[in-house]
Write a protein that binds this DNA or RNA. Sequence first.
RNA 1: GGCGCUGUGGCCGAGUGGCUAGGCAGAGGUCUGCAAAACCUUUUACAGCGGUUCGAAUCCGCUCAGCGCCUCCA
Length: 499
Amino acid sequence: MSLKEQYPVKLYNTLTKKKEEFKSIHKDKVGMYVCGPTVYSDVHLGNVRTFLCFDIVYRYLTYLGYQVRYVRNITDVGHLENDADEGEDKISKKARLEELEPMEIVQRYTKGFHEVLSQFNFWPPSIEPSATGHIVEQIELVQDLLDKGLAYETNGSVYFDVTKYDKQYNYGKLSGRNIEELMESGRDLDSQDEKRNKVDFALWKKASTSHIMRWSSPWGPGFPGWHLECTVMSTKYLGETFDIHGGGMDLVFPHHECEIAQSCGSRGKDPVNYWMHSNMLTVNGQKMSKSLGNSFLPGQLFSGDHDLLDRGYGPMVVRFFMLQSHYSSTLDFSNEALGAAERGYKRLMEGIKVSRDLVYEPAEKSEGFEVRVKNMIDQLFSNLSDDFNTAKGLAALFEITTLMNNFKVGNEKPGVLSQETFNALIRHYHGFVYDVLGLKEEDESSNQLVDGVIDILIKLRQDAKAGKNYALSDKIRDDLKEIGVILKDGKGGTEYSLN
RNA sequence: GGCGCUGUGGCCGAGUGGCUAGGCAGAGGUCUGCAAAACCUUUUACAGCGGUUCGAAUCCGCUCAGCGCCUCCA
Protein backbone atom coordinates (compact mmCIF):
# COMPACT_ATOMS: atom_id res chain seq x y z
CA MET A 1 0.00 0.00 0.00
CA SER A 2 1.40 3.36 -0.94
CA LEU A 3 1.80 6.16 1.54
CA LYS A 4 -1.01 8.19 0.08
CA GLU A 5 -3.38 5.27 0.40
CA GLN A 6 -2.19 4.51 3.90
CA TYR A 7 -2.53 8.09 5.06
CA PRO A 8 -5.27 9.72 3.01
CA VAL A 9 -5.16 13.49 3.28
CA LYS A 10 -8.09 15.31 4.74
CA LEU A 11 -8.42 19.00 4.22
CA TYR A 12 -10.83 21.76 5.05
CA ASN A 13 -12.61 22.91 1.94
CA THR A 14 -13.77 26.51 2.07
CA LEU A 15 -16.33 25.73 -0.61
CA THR A 16 -18.15 23.05 1.36
CA LYS A 17 -17.12 24.35 4.81
CA LYS A 18 -16.18 20.81 5.74
CA LYS A 19 -13.09 18.77 6.23
CA GLU A 20 -13.03 16.32 3.36
CA GLU A 21 -10.93 13.45 2.21
CA PHE A 22 -8.74 14.57 -0.64
CA LYS A 23 -9.18 12.75 -3.92
CA SER A 24 -7.18 13.94 -6.86
CA ILE A 25 -8.76 14.15 -10.28
CA HIS A 26 -5.94 12.25 -11.91
CA LYS A 27 -4.49 9.33 -10.06
CA ASP A 28 -1.20 10.19 -8.38
CA LYS A 29 -1.20 13.72 -9.77
CA VAL A 30 -2.26 16.95 -8.16
CA GLY A 31 -2.81 20.34 -9.74
CA MET A 32 -2.55 23.25 -7.34
CA TYR A 33 -2.88 26.95 -7.99
CA VAL A 34 -1.99 29.62 -5.49
CA CYS A 35 -2.48 33.34 -5.90
CA GLY A 36 0.90 34.94 -5.88
CA PRO A 37 1.91 38.44 -4.95
CA THR A 38 1.34 41.70 -6.72
CA VAL A 39 4.87 42.84 -7.24
CA TYR A 40 4.59 46.51 -6.48
CA SER A 41 6.36 46.44 -3.13
CA ASP A 42 8.28 44.13 -0.81
CA VAL A 43 6.61 41.00 0.46
CA HIS A 44 5.93 41.15 4.16
CA LEU A 45 5.68 38.39 6.70
CA GLY A 46 1.96 37.97 6.26
CA ASN A 47 2.54 37.04 2.65
CA VAL A 48 5.21 34.64 3.73
CA ARG A 49 2.79 32.81 5.98
CA THR A 50 0.41 32.08 3.15
CA PHE A 51 3.11 30.85 0.84
CA LEU A 52 4.47 28.76 3.68
CA CYS A 53 1.11 27.09 4.08
CA PHE A 54 1.11 25.99 0.46
CA ASP A 55 4.77 25.15 0.51
CA ILE A 56 3.83 22.58 3.15
CA VAL A 57 0.94 21.30 1.06
CA TYR A 58 3.25 21.00 -1.93
CA ARG A 59 5.98 19.29 0.07
CA TYR A 60 3.74 16.89 1.95
CA LEU A 61 1.77 15.77 -1.08
CA THR A 62 5.06 15.20 -2.82
CA TYR A 63 6.34 13.25 0.18
CA LEU A 64 3.28 11.04 -0.01
CA GLY A 65 4.16 10.25 -3.60
CA TYR A 66 1.95 12.60 -5.55
CA GLN A 67 3.31 14.31 -8.57
CA VAL A 68 2.29 17.89 -7.95
CA ARG A 69 2.13 20.65 -10.47
CA TYR A 70 2.21 23.80 -8.43
CA VAL A 71 1.34 26.99 -10.25
CA ARG A 72 1.80 30.31 -8.53
CA ASN A 73 1.38 33.48 -10.49
CA ILE A 74 3.15 36.77 -10.41
CA THR A 75 0.70 39.63 -10.70
CA ASP A 76 2.58 42.19 -12.66
CA VAL A 77 -0.39 44.22 -13.73
CA GLY A 78 -1.46 46.00 -10.60
CA HIS A 79 -5.03 45.54 -9.61
CA LEU A 80 -7.08 48.64 -9.63
CA GLU A 81 -6.84 50.79 -6.56
CA ASN A 82 -10.60 50.51 -6.30
CA ASP A 83 -13.66 50.69 -8.43
CA ALA A 84 -13.83 54.40 -8.21
CA ASP A 85 -10.40 55.44 -9.27
CA GLU A 86 -9.39 56.82 -12.57
CA GLY A 87 -8.13 53.53 -13.78
CA GLU A 88 -4.55 53.80 -12.75
CA ASP A 89 -3.24 50.60 -11.37
CA LYS A 90 -0.85 49.92 -8.57
CA ILE A 91 2.12 49.07 -10.67
CA SER A 92 1.95 52.13 -12.86
CA LYS A 93 1.20 54.35 -9.89
CA LYS A 94 4.29 53.09 -8.17
CA ALA A 95 6.24 53.50 -11.36
CA ARG A 96 5.24 57.12 -11.58
CA LEU A 97 6.13 57.58 -7.95
CA GLU A 98 9.54 56.15 -8.39
CA GLU A 99 10.01 57.37 -11.93
CA LEU A 100 10.69 53.93 -13.22
CA GLU A 101 9.40 51.82 -16.01
CA PRO A 102 6.57 49.61 -14.76
CA MET A 103 8.54 46.55 -15.75
CA GLU A 104 11.45 47.83 -13.74
CA ILE A 105 9.25 47.80 -10.66
CA VAL A 106 8.04 44.36 -11.53
CA GLN A 107 11.55 43.10 -12.01
CA ARG A 108 12.84 44.56 -8.80
CA TYR A 109 10.10 43.25 -6.55
CA THR A 110 9.88 39.91 -8.27
CA LYS A 111 13.55 39.44 -7.58
CA GLY A 112 13.04 40.47 -3.97
CA PHE A 113 10.14 38.09 -3.65
CA HIS A 114 12.23 35.19 -4.89
CA GLU A 115 15.08 36.05 -2.58
CA VAL A 116 12.82 36.10 0.44
CA LEU A 117 11.19 32.83 -0.45
CA SER A 118 14.50 31.13 -0.91
CA GLN A 119 15.70 32.43 2.45
CA PHE A 120 12.69 30.75 3.98
CA ASN A 121 13.56 27.61 2.05
CA PHE A 122 10.39 27.44 -0.04
CA TRP A 123 10.31 25.07 -2.95
CA PRO A 124 9.84 27.05 -6.13
CA PRO A 125 6.58 26.37 -7.93
CA SER A 126 6.52 24.21 -11.05
CA ILE A 127 5.26 27.10 -13.12
CA GLU A 128 5.28 30.78 -12.24
CA PRO A 129 3.31 32.55 -14.94
CA SER A 130 2.84 36.27 -15.09
CA ALA A 131 -0.30 38.20 -15.85
CA THR A 132 1.27 40.29 -18.58
CA GLY A 133 2.32 37.13 -20.36
CA HIS A 134 -1.30 36.08 -20.69
CA ILE A 135 -3.07 39.15 -21.99
CA VAL A 136 -4.17 37.34 -25.12
CA GLU A 137 -5.87 34.59 -23.14
CA GLN A 138 -7.48 37.13 -20.87
CA ILE A 139 -8.94 39.00 -23.80
CA GLU A 140 -10.26 35.72 -25.14
CA LEU A 141 -12.01 35.00 -21.87
CA VAL A 142 -13.58 38.44 -21.78
CA GLN A 143 -14.81 37.92 -25.32
CA ASP A 144 -16.19 34.54 -24.41
CA LEU A 145 -18.13 35.98 -21.49
CA LEU A 146 -19.45 38.75 -23.74
CA ASP A 147 -20.55 36.15 -26.29
CA LYS A 148 -22.37 34.23 -23.59
CA GLY A 149 -24.17 37.37 -22.52
CA LEU A 150 -22.66 37.40 -19.06
CA ALA A 151 -20.65 40.55 -19.62
CA TYR A 152 -21.33 43.92 -21.16
CA GLU A 153 -19.25 46.73 -22.51
CA THR A 154 -19.57 50.30 -21.36
CA ASN A 155 -17.39 53.02 -22.71
CA GLY A 156 -14.40 50.85 -23.51
CA SER A 157 -14.60 48.84 -20.31
CA VAL A 158 -16.15 45.42 -19.87
CA TYR A 159 -17.99 44.32 -16.76
CA PHE A 160 -19.18 40.98 -15.52
CA ASP A 161 -22.94 40.88 -15.12
CA VAL A 162 -23.22 39.30 -11.70
CA THR A 163 -27.00 39.56 -11.43
CA LYS A 164 -27.49 37.77 -14.69
CA TYR A 165 -24.91 35.16 -13.83
CA ASP A 166 -26.59 34.53 -10.48
CA LYS A 167 -29.80 33.50 -12.22
CA GLN A 168 -28.04 30.49 -13.75
CA TYR A 169 -25.38 29.83 -11.17
CA ASN A 170 -24.85 30.70 -7.56
CA TYR A 171 -22.79 33.79 -6.99
CA GLY A 172 -21.48 33.87 -3.43
CA LYS A 173 -21.28 30.17 -2.75
CA LEU A 174 -17.66 30.31 -1.68
CA SER A 175 -17.86 33.32 0.59
CA GLY A 176 -21.37 32.68 1.86
CA ARG A 177 -22.80 35.90 0.55
CA ASN A 178 -25.88 36.53 -1.46
CA ILE A 179 -26.58 39.17 -4.02
CA GLU A 180 -29.38 40.91 -2.17
CA GLU A 181 -27.17 41.60 0.80
CA LEU A 182 -24.32 42.71 -1.39
CA MET A 183 -26.62 45.05 -3.28
CA GLU A 184 -27.76 46.91 -0.21
CA SER A 185 -24.84 46.61 2.12
CA GLY A 186 -21.32 47.72 1.74
CA ARG A 187 -19.92 51.14 1.28
CA ASP A 188 -21.10 53.19 -1.60
CA LEU A 189 -18.42 54.01 -4.05
CA ASP A 190 -18.47 56.81 -6.53
CA SER A 191 -18.63 56.54 -10.29
CA GLN A 192 -20.65 53.38 -10.39
CA ASP A 193 -22.41 54.69 -13.44
CA GLU A 194 -20.56 52.47 -15.90
CA LYS A 195 -21.84 49.40 -14.13
CA ARG A 196 -25.37 48.14 -14.34
CA ASN A 197 -25.22 46.94 -10.76
CA LYS A 198 -22.86 47.72 -7.97
CA VAL A 199 -21.99 44.04 -7.56
CA ASP A 200 -20.64 43.82 -11.10
CA PHE A 201 -16.90 43.67 -11.40
CA ALA A 202 -14.48 44.76 -14.10
CA LEU A 203 -13.15 42.27 -16.62
CA TRP A 204 -11.42 44.86 -18.75
CA LYS A 205 -10.74 48.46 -17.98
CA LYS A 206 -10.27 51.21 -20.49
CA ALA A 207 -6.90 52.88 -20.16
CA SER A 208 -6.81 56.61 -19.92
CA THR A 209 -4.25 58.40 -22.07
CA SER A 210 -1.91 58.76 -19.12
CA HIS A 211 -2.04 55.12 -18.25
CA ILE A 212 1.29 53.49 -18.91
CA MET A 213 0.39 49.81 -18.85
CA ARG A 214 -2.01 49.22 -21.69
CA TRP A 215 -2.83 46.67 -24.33
CA SER A 216 -5.01 46.94 -27.35
CA SER A 217 -8.21 44.95 -27.32
CA PRO A 218 -11.47 44.68 -29.25
CA TRP A 219 -12.79 47.34 -26.86
CA GLY A 220 -9.91 49.71 -27.30
CA PRO A 221 -6.71 50.16 -25.32
CA GLY A 222 -6.96 48.98 -21.75
CA PHE A 223 -5.84 46.46 -19.20
CA PRO A 224 -7.32 43.36 -17.58
CA GLY A 225 -9.47 43.39 -14.46
CA TRP A 226 -8.54 42.03 -11.07
CA HIS A 227 -9.72 38.50 -11.21
CA LEU A 228 -9.13 37.53 -14.78
CA GLU A 229 -5.51 36.45 -14.69
CA CYS A 230 -5.93 33.71 -12.12
CA THR A 231 -8.81 32.16 -14.01
CA VAL A 232 -6.90 32.24 -17.25
CA MET A 233 -3.58 30.97 -15.97
CA SER A 234 -4.97 28.25 -13.74
CA THR A 235 -7.03 26.94 -16.62
CA LYS A 236 -4.18 27.11 -19.05
CA TYR A 237 -1.74 25.14 -16.92
CA LEU A 238 -4.00 22.94 -14.83
CA GLY A 239 -7.11 22.42 -16.91
CA GLU A 240 -10.71 23.51 -16.64
CA THR A 241 -11.13 21.75 -13.33
CA PHE A 242 -8.22 21.16 -11.05
CA ASP A 243 -7.61 19.94 -7.51
CA ILE A 244 -6.54 22.67 -5.13
CA HIS A 245 -6.76 26.42 -5.26
CA GLY A 246 -5.19 28.34 -2.43
CA GLY A 247 -4.62 31.80 -1.17
CA GLY A 248 -4.96 34.02 1.85
CA MET A 249 -8.32 34.27 3.55
CA ASP A 250 -8.68 37.86 2.51
CA LEU A 251 -8.93 36.71 -1.08
CA VAL A 252 -12.07 34.65 -0.59
CA PHE A 253 -14.19 37.64 -1.40
CA PRO A 254 -14.22 39.07 -3.91
CA HIS A 255 -11.24 37.57 -5.71
CA HIS A 256 -11.94 33.86 -5.52
CA GLU A 257 -15.66 34.30 -5.72
CA CYS A 258 -15.16 36.14 -8.99
CA GLU A 259 -12.82 33.48 -10.29
CA ILE A 260 -15.54 30.91 -9.77
CA ALA A 261 -18.01 33.17 -11.54
CA GLN A 262 -15.72 33.67 -14.51
CA SER A 263 -15.02 29.99 -14.87
CA CYS A 264 -18.57 28.82 -14.39
CA GLY A 265 -19.80 31.55 -16.66
CA SER A 266 -17.43 30.64 -19.41
CA ARG A 267 -17.34 26.87 -19.14
CA GLY A 268 -20.35 25.99 -17.09
CA LYS A 269 -18.49 24.13 -14.39
CA ASP A 270 -16.63 24.70 -11.20
CA PRO A 271 -12.93 25.30 -11.70
CA VAL A 272 -11.74 23.89 -8.38
CA ASN A 273 -12.50 20.88 -6.19
CA TYR A 274 -10.81 22.05 -3.01
CA TRP A 275 -10.42 25.66 -1.94
CA MET A 276 -7.89 26.21 0.81
CA HIS A 277 -7.36 29.47 2.64
CA SER A 278 -4.69 30.33 5.12
CA ASN A 279 -5.43 32.68 7.95
CA MET A 280 -3.83 35.99 8.70
CA LEU A 281 -0.72 36.83 10.63
CA THR A 282 -1.53 39.42 13.24
CA VAL A 283 0.48 41.95 15.17
CA ASN A 284 -0.96 42.80 18.56
CA GLY A 285 -4.16 41.17 17.47
CA GLN A 286 -4.49 43.10 14.25
CA LYS A 287 -4.06 41.82 10.76
CA MET A 288 -0.63 42.50 9.37
CA SER A 289 -1.10 44.40 6.17
CA LYS A 290 0.52 46.98 4.04
CA SER A 291 -2.39 49.35 4.28
CA LEU A 292 -2.42 49.25 8.09
CA GLY A 293 1.28 49.97 8.12
CA ASN A 294 2.00 47.30 10.70
CA SER A 295 3.77 44.89 8.42
CA PHE A 296 7.16 43.43 9.01
CA LEU A 297 9.61 43.00 6.22
CA PRO A 298 11.63 39.81 6.37
CA GLY A 299 14.82 41.83 6.35
CA GLN A 300 13.78 43.73 9.47
CA LEU A 301 13.08 40.48 11.16
CA PHE A 302 16.46 39.00 10.39
CA SER A 303 18.28 42.09 11.54
CA GLY A 304 16.00 42.88 14.47
CA ASP A 305 15.56 46.38 13.11
CA HIS A 306 11.99 46.96 14.28
CA ASP A 307 10.36 48.49 17.33
CA LEU A 308 8.71 45.26 18.31
CA LEU A 309 11.87 43.20 18.17
CA ASP A 310 14.61 42.94 20.75
CA ARG A 311 16.89 41.28 18.28
CA GLY A 312 17.00 39.46 14.97
CA TYR A 313 15.66 36.01 14.25
CA GLY A 314 16.77 33.70 11.47
CA PRO A 315 14.41 32.61 8.72
CA MET A 316 14.31 29.04 9.97
CA VAL A 317 13.26 30.19 13.42
CA VAL A 318 10.46 32.15 11.83
CA ARG A 319 9.48 29.20 9.72
CA PHE A 320 9.39 27.00 12.80
CA PHE A 321 7.41 29.63 14.66
CA MET A 322 4.75 29.68 11.96
CA LEU A 323 4.61 25.91 11.74
CA GLN A 324 3.71 25.69 15.42
CA SER A 325 0.22 26.91 14.62
CA HIS A 326 -2.35 25.58 12.22
CA TYR A 327 -2.65 27.47 8.97
CA SER A 328 -6.34 28.13 9.49
CA SER A 329 -5.81 29.98 12.77
CA THR A 330 -4.64 33.50 13.11
CA LEU A 331 -1.15 33.68 14.47
CA ASP A 332 0.01 36.57 16.57
CA PHE A 333 3.47 37.81 16.07
CA SER A 334 5.49 38.76 19.12
CA ASN A 335 9.00 38.96 20.38
CA GLU A 336 8.40 36.51 23.22
CA ALA A 337 6.81 33.94 20.95
CA LEU A 338 9.74 34.15 18.55
CA GLY A 339 12.23 33.74 21.35
CA ALA A 340 10.46 30.62 22.53
CA ALA A 341 10.32 29.32 18.99
CA GLU A 342 14.04 29.80 18.64
CA ARG A 343 14.74 27.56 21.62
CA GLY A 344 12.36 24.93 20.34
CA TYR A 345 13.81 25.05 16.87
CA LYS A 346 17.31 24.55 18.23
CA ARG A 347 16.19 21.60 20.30
CA LEU A 348 14.69 19.97 17.24
CA MET A 349 17.75 20.52 15.07
CA GLU A 350 19.93 19.25 17.89
CA GLY A 351 17.86 16.08 17.87
CA ILE A 352 18.55 15.69 14.17
CA LYS A 353 22.23 16.03 14.80
CA VAL A 354 22.07 13.41 17.54
CA SER A 355 20.18 11.03 15.28
CA ARG A 356 22.93 11.16 12.67
CA ASP A 357 25.50 9.76 15.06
CA LEU A 358 23.43 6.88 16.32
CA VAL A 359 24.79 3.42 15.67
CA TYR A 360 22.54 0.42 15.35
CA GLU A 361 23.81 -2.64 17.19
CA PRO A 362 21.42 -5.57 17.34
CA ALA A 363 20.16 -6.33 20.83
CA GLU A 364 17.37 -8.28 22.42
CA LYS A 365 14.12 -7.19 20.84
CA SER A 366 11.28 -5.55 22.67
CA GLU A 367 7.89 -5.94 21.09
CA GLY A 368 6.37 -3.13 23.13
CA PHE A 369 9.07 -0.66 22.19
CA GLU A 370 8.82 -1.68 18.55
CA VAL A 371 5.11 -0.89 18.59
CA ARG A 372 5.68 2.41 20.36
CA VAL A 373 8.17 3.55 17.77
CA LYS A 374 6.02 2.42 14.87
CA ASN A 375 3.30 4.49 16.43
CA MET A 376 5.52 7.55 16.45
CA ILE A 377 6.16 7.20 12.75
CA ASP A 378 2.49 6.68 12.18
CA GLN A 379 1.71 9.86 14.08
CA LEU A 380 3.92 11.93 11.80
CA PHE A 381 1.87 10.95 8.80
CA SER A 382 -1.55 11.00 10.36
CA ASN A 383 -0.94 14.43 11.86
CA LEU A 384 0.13 15.95 8.57
CA SER A 385 -2.62 14.14 6.70
CA ASP A 386 -5.07 15.75 9.07
CA ASP A 387 -5.44 19.02 7.21
CA PHE A 388 -1.69 19.62 7.12
CA ASN A 389 -1.56 20.04 10.87
CA THR A 390 2.05 21.08 11.29
CA ALA A 391 1.53 21.90 14.97
CA LYS A 392 0.62 18.30 15.67
CA GLY A 393 3.36 17.18 13.35
CA LEU A 394 5.90 19.08 15.38
CA ALA A 395 4.57 17.57 18.58
CA ALA A 396 5.22 14.13 17.08
CA LEU A 397 8.68 15.20 15.99
CA PHE A 398 9.48 16.33 19.50
CA GLU A 399 8.51 12.95 20.84
CA ILE A 400 10.98 11.41 18.47
CA THR A 401 13.53 14.01 19.47
CA THR A 402 13.19 12.94 23.08
CA LEU A 403 13.69 9.37 21.98
CA MET A 404 16.81 10.33 20.05
CA ASN A 405 18.21 11.93 23.17
CA ASN A 406 17.39 8.82 25.14
CA PHE A 407 19.30 6.78 22.59
CA LYS A 408 22.21 9.10 22.91
CA VAL A 409 22.29 9.03 26.68
CA GLY A 410 21.80 5.28 26.69
CA ASN A 411 18.39 5.13 28.34
CA GLU A 412 17.18 3.31 25.26
CA LYS A 413 18.99 1.21 22.70
CA PRO A 414 18.35 1.38 18.94
CA GLY A 415 19.17 -2.30 18.67
CA VAL A 416 16.07 -3.23 20.62
CA LEU A 417 14.16 -2.26 17.51
CA SER A 418 14.21 -4.19 14.30
CA GLN A 419 16.73 -2.80 11.88
CA GLU A 420 13.88 -1.98 9.53
CA THR A 421 11.93 0.05 12.08
CA PHE A 422 15.00 1.88 13.26
CA ASN A 423 15.87 2.86 9.70
CA ALA A 424 12.33 3.97 9.01
CA LEU A 425 12.33 6.06 12.16
CA ILE A 426 15.49 7.88 11.20
CA ARG A 427 14.44 8.22 7.56
CA HIS A 428 11.09 9.78 8.37
CA TYR A 429 12.42 11.85 11.23
CA HIS A 430 14.77 13.46 8.76
CA GLY A 431 12.20 13.39 6.01
CA PHE A 432 9.60 15.30 7.97
CA VAL A 433 12.00 17.87 9.31
CA TYR A 434 13.83 18.54 6.06
CA ASP A 435 11.49 17.58 3.25
CA VAL A 436 8.02 18.06 4.65
CA LEU A 437 8.44 20.96 7.05
CA GLY A 438 11.31 22.38 5.03
CA LEU A 439 13.50 23.16 8.02
CA LYS A 440 17.24 23.13 7.77
CA GLU A 441 20.24 24.08 9.83
CA GLU A 442 20.28 27.81 10.22
CA ASP A 443 24.03 28.13 10.09
CA GLU A 444 25.82 26.72 7.12
CA SER A 445 28.99 28.23 8.46
CA SER A 446 30.22 25.04 10.01
CA ASN A 447 32.73 23.38 7.78
CA GLN A 448 35.58 20.95 8.03
CA LEU A 449 38.18 23.57 8.85
CA VAL A 450 36.13 24.96 11.72
CA ASP A 451 35.36 21.45 12.89
CA GLY A 452 39.04 20.60 12.94
CA VAL A 453 40.13 23.74 14.74
CA ILE A 454 37.49 23.42 17.42
CA ASP A 455 38.29 19.77 17.92
CA ILE A 456 41.89 20.76 18.66
CA LEU A 457 40.70 23.29 21.22
CA ILE A 458 38.39 20.72 22.78
CA LYS A 459 41.35 18.34 23.15
CA LEU A 460 43.48 21.07 24.74
CA ARG A 461 40.68 21.78 27.17
CA GLN A 462 40.34 18.08 27.88
CA ASP A 463 44.04 17.95 28.77
CA ALA A 464 43.73 21.00 30.98
CA LYS A 465 40.82 19.44 32.79
CA ALA A 466 42.71 16.20 33.25
CA GLY A 467 45.48 18.23 34.89
CA LYS A 468 42.85 20.01 37.00
CA ASN A 469 43.80 23.27 35.36
CA TYR A 470 40.23 24.55 35.45
CA ALA A 471 41.26 28.14 34.95
CA LEU A 472 42.55 27.25 31.50
CA SER A 473 39.73 24.89 30.62
CA ASP A 474 37.14 27.49 31.58
CA LYS A 475 38.98 30.14 29.64
CA ILE A 476 38.87 28.02 26.51
CA ARG A 477 35.18 27.44 27.01
CA ASP A 478 34.42 31.08 27.77
CA ASP A 479 36.51 32.45 24.94
CA LEU A 480 34.83 30.11 22.49
CA LYS A 481 31.48 31.20 23.84
CA GLU A 482 32.45 34.79 23.16
CA ILE A 483 32.70 34.05 19.47
CA GLY A 484 29.55 31.96 19.46
CA VAL A 485 30.79 28.42 19.95
CA ILE A 486 29.02 26.61 22.78
CA LEU A 487 30.79 23.60 24.29
CA LYS A 488 28.67 20.86 25.76
CA ASP A 489 30.20 18.17 27.93
CA GLY A 490 28.42 14.89 27.59
CA LYS A 491 29.11 11.36 28.61
CA GLY A 492 30.66 10.50 25.29
CA GLY A 493 32.89 13.56 25.22
CA THR A 494 32.53 17.21 24.38
CA GLU A 495 30.44 18.49 21.53
CA TYR A 496 29.90 21.97 20.26
CA SER A 497 27.23 23.99 18.57
CA LEU A 498 27.32 27.35 16.91
CA ASN A 499 25.17 29.99 18.46
C1' G B 1 -25.44 47.48 9.02
C1' G B 2 -24.59 42.31 6.64
C1' C B 3 -21.66 37.71 6.70
C1' G B 4 -18.06 35.00 9.42
C1' C B 5 -14.21 33.75 13.03
C1' U B 6 -11.81 33.63 17.80
C1' G B 7 -11.39 33.65 23.36
C1' U B 8 -7.15 27.24 26.32
C1' G B 9 -2.42 27.14 32.15
C1' G B 10 3.21 32.62 33.18
C1' C B 11 3.82 33.01 27.36
C1' C B 12 3.00 30.78 22.36
C1' G B 13 -0.11 27.32 20.66
C1' A B 14 -2.76 21.91 19.23
C1' G B 15 -7.03 19.37 20.37
C1' U B 16 -11.24 15.79 20.96
C1' G B 17 -17.85 14.74 24.10
C1' G B 18 -14.93 10.58 28.86
C1' C B 19 -7.91 8.89 27.53
C1' U B 20 -0.58 13.38 28.91
C1' A B 21 -0.71 17.70 22.77
C1' G B 22 3.83 20.09 21.98
C1' G B 23 7.32 24.21 22.53
C1' C B 24 9.16 28.17 25.84
C1' A B 25 9.46 29.67 30.87
C1' G B 26 9.22 27.80 36.39
C1' A B 27 10.37 23.88 40.34
C1' G B 28 12.98 19.35 42.07
C1' G B 29 16.42 15.54 40.73
C1' U B 30 20.46 12.61 37.71
C1' C B 31 25.07 13.67 35.31
C1' U B 32 29.33 17.34 35.88
C1' G B 33 35.33 20.14 39.12
C1' C B 34 31.69 24.14 38.03
C1' A B 35 28.44 25.41 34.23
C1' A B 36 25.86 24.43 29.78
C1' A B 37 23.59 20.56 27.24
C1' A B 38 21.01 16.06 27.83
C1' C B 39 17.77 12.88 30.65
C1' C B 40 13.88 11.92 34.58
C1' U B 41 9.89 13.97 37.61
C1' U B 42 6.57 18.07 38.33
C1' U B 43 2.91 22.88 39.35
C1' U B 44 -0.68 26.31 36.87
C1' A B 45 -6.24 25.36 31.90
C1' C B 46 -10.00 25.68 28.90
C1' A B 47 -13.78 34.15 28.94
C1' G B 48 -18.65 34.50 31.95
C1' C B 49 -23.66 32.60 32.77
C1' G B 50 -27.26 29.05 31.64
C1' G B 51 -28.80 24.44 28.97
C1' U B 52 -28.33 19.26 26.56
C1' U B 53 -25.73 14.76 28.51
C1' C B 54 -24.22 9.48 32.90
C1' G B 55 -20.17 12.89 31.54
C1' A B 56 -18.38 19.11 28.07
C1' A B 57 -12.88 23.08 27.42
C1' U B 58 -15.24 20.10 23.29
C1' C B 59 -22.59 20.42 21.42
C1' C B 60 -26.65 24.53 22.04
C1' G B 61 -28.24 29.56 23.79
C1' C B 62 -27.16 34.25 25.87
C1' U B 63 -23.51 37.88 27.70
C1' C B 64 -18.73 40.08 27.52
C1' A B 65 -14.12 40.86 24.83
C1' G B 66 -11.27 40.77 20.39
C1' C B 67 -10.63 40.00 15.14
C1' G B 68 -11.60 39.28 9.77
C1' C B 69 -14.33 40.09 5.12
C1' C B 70 -17.94 43.36 2.82
C1' U B 71 -12.52 48.44 -0.78
C1' C B 72 -6.31 46.77 -3.18
C1' C B 73 -4.51 43.23 0.33
C1' A B 74 -1.68 36.67 1.63
